[in-house]
Amino acid sequence: MEQQDRPLSPHLQVYRPQLTSVMSISHRVCGVALSVGSLLLIYWLSAAAAGPEAFSRAQGMLGGFFGQIILFLFTYALFYHLCNGVRHLYWDSGNGLEIDAVYRTGYIVIGVSIALTLLVWILAYATGGGA
C-alpha cells in the first residue's frame, strides 16, 4: 500500500509541561520505580531471616549515605503514588473532574505526599531508625 504524507497528530514534546500531564506520568513512573524498589524490601526481609550477619550487612548498606538517599526517594515515590492513587479513586467515583478541581487535588497530593515523607523520616530519626 502506498504511504501517504498525512499530517500527524502533535507529538507529546510540543506541549508545555502542565501540572496535570506531569503528575499523570509521574504516577506511572513512581509505580514502576516502586516495583523495582520492592526488591529492597524483599532483600531486607530475607537478610533478617538469614541471620544477624546478613542483616547487619543489609542495615549497613541501606543505612549508609547512599542507601538513605535511595530510601528517601523511595518513601516519596511511595507516598506520591499512594496520594495520587487516592485521587484516582476519587476520580473513579465520577467526582473532581472539573479542571479547577483537578488542579486543586493535584496541589493537595503534592503537599500531603511531601508532608507524609517528612513525617516518616522525622519519626525514623527520632526513634533511631534513620541512624
Partner: peptide, 23 residues
Amino acid sequence: AVALVPLVIWFAFSLASNAGGNH
C-alpha cells in the same frame, strides 16, 4: 489499591520506628 492505602501507611510509619534496631 484500596487495601494498600492502610497497609502502606502502617508499613511506612511502623518500619520507620522499628527498622533501626539490631537483629
